[in-house]
Design a protein around this nucleic acid. Structure first.
Lengths: 197, 197, 197, 197
DNA sequence: CATGAATGAGCCTTCATTCAT
DNA sequence: CATGAATGAAGGCTCATTCAT
């Protein structure tokens, strides 16, 4: 009945900002543009966010790689994916689908370039990145008999290859599925040989 | 002898800008700061660059990954590196050393986040990225009997893992040498199994 | 009651700008000076005008000759001025009084010199000038039996003489009334002889 | 033999400046543009002119109306033009031809808008304008028996109508010859009736 | 909660002028 | 006479933030 659903204003601001940030970068996007797209007044922005940087922090947090792979933190997931191969394919699929929303990939790269000058962003990223890699490695060791360090390296290679695809996909023209299959294959090959050692 | 070496003004501007861009990002660095650091007047900047964006383009070009690995384009290099392992280790070393100048890595990430809004940067990156990956794959096929596509995937994984190290190194704490050795190992493992197929 | 009357900010900017433009010319007047005189902040200027040129266009429009003579477009005016002589004297009086506000004459001349490089100003002037002359001629034909072309020439001479007075008045030292009377006399003389032909 | 004729540098600067001033106005034309068009170095400009304003003064002087009508100051000219009509037609022709070089008319209007802020330009114009009108009136009194004041008015109307044509010609579409003939006719009519008084 | 006019520090860029060569 | 690199004051414009309503 209400002309405005309660609590929707903040959401509108966030989604408008995301779209604009992805297209123009954080610094080139103005608060004016954000509120215009959101259809609210300038002052309203400051009711929900202390500053533009405040909003940036929130958005970068939401597009961290760790947010891309829900299966990584789901304790019951291994039931559905009995093999490491199927599990990695699932993680990869989730990752690539998450970042196929173009603005997320853009914001992620903006975030990487932002770390140097926004200490808080840097800390969040470092911590979330650590967690991501460690959890990934832990999962691997649950599937195959391999040292934690090797698992870490393997998972890092996995993540790195997925990330690289985000900005290099147009350079080579592999399909997403093909690339993912190959990357997972490489990770498995590596682990197999690491195990035997 | 002269109080001013010829052609040094431009260089001073470029190096000052690089340092500042790496520390603060492109958008937060002002022309004022650049010229102050370079010790020249504001107007002088515009004698050498049409605009701030003009300078950015030049700098991003100079920090593209392809500039990081001279051995990739050296036709006589295989003599010194008879095995693929030694060659990849060399490429990796060059890459990591190039970007160990912190400002280069920073500018590289800034560049990635810039592509969306600066078409010319995007084109340069896409092309240079293509060349990099294809040349790397070509080199691999000169060492081992493997299909070009598999070589491409392998080299992309190699590059991806190196890049990822640039912003994830503090997340795990592997030493550069250890990480590189492991990555090269993984790439070789993968190729070995691809060959046998 | 309010400390700020609504809509007064824009007016303050406009009037401050007019005064300054008249005294210093468009190009030598800075936005800083305008806002200082208006007692508002720099940013406020850009709330009301897209650019300095935007303001210039508005001002030039307001000082076009056609704005100087309300009686030219008043359909009921002929009642008050039964003779052509009295009507022309009225028009002339309005014209000279309008431009006796010194800034208006100044801005008018600036506009003339602006036409070459501001296409939109040129178009507005050309059209408003056409209308002015045609309407003047039409009025003349309503008073005296004369061809439209002759009326056009006569009215152009009338307007030209008034305009010339604006920048030549100090060269000769005729009083405004005397000059106007003489000019109207000349126009009437000419029309009289045109009629008899 | 010389690659540069002596004394040509100054001329090249002046003619380049004229063209640019006419097209873009004084303030929007830069010294850079002038020297580029003239094909000389920036410093060379300041060998010949103390400043940009110095050059402007010279140019405005050269495009004053009094420079447009050589016959006005030729003492022997009346021999060739026995009637006032033929003489005025000659003056008008000279005037319109002089300003048919478009840059001259432009510079003339620029000058009018410049007077307020360049005192020296104002003085030159006022004086030259006085001389022009007085000399014109004197000439008229040599042809017809009429008071000096009436002659002044008549000549001012004459000049005013010619000037007005410079910026209003496209508004009505009379040919130059037709308009001139009509204006001269009007002036003569007026003088004829003034005489009889 | 919401508004939007107002702010003003700060940015990028221009350009007349100088001076060592 | 001629050059052109260097200067730096000054200008137009942007935009994150505030606050009275």
């Amino acid at each position: 009945m209400a002309t405005k659903s309660p609590g929707k204003t903040r959401e509108k601001i966030v989604s408008s900002a995301m779209e604009l940030f992805a297209r123009k970068g954080f610094d080139k996007t103005t608060v004016d543009e954000i509120v215009a797209k959101a259809g609210v007044a300038k002052g309203t922005f400051y009711l929900y966010f202390k500053s533009k940087d405040d909003l940036i922090k929130e958005l970068t947090f939401e597009t961290m790689p760790i947010m891309a792979m829900p299966s990584l933190n789901d304790p019951y997931i291994t039931v559905s994916f009995p093999t490491l191969e199927s599990y990695l394919l699932q993680l990869g699929k989730e990752f690539l689908e998450f970042y196929s929303e173009n603005y997320r990939a853009q914001i992620f790269f903006h975030m990487l370039s932002l770390r140097e000058r926004m200490k808080s962003v840097n800390e969040i990223y470092s911590q979330s990145c650590s967690e991501l890699l460690r959890e990934g490695a832990r999962r691997i060791t649950a599937y195959v008999k391999v040292g934690f360090e090797d698992a870490l390296i393997a998972f890092q290679i996995f993540i790195a290859s997925l990330m690289h695809y985000l900005h290099a996909k147009e350079c080579l023209g592999f399909s997403q599925e093909y690339y993912l299959k190959k990357v997972v294959g490489a990770v498995l090959n590596h682990l197999r040989l690491s195990v035997s050692v």
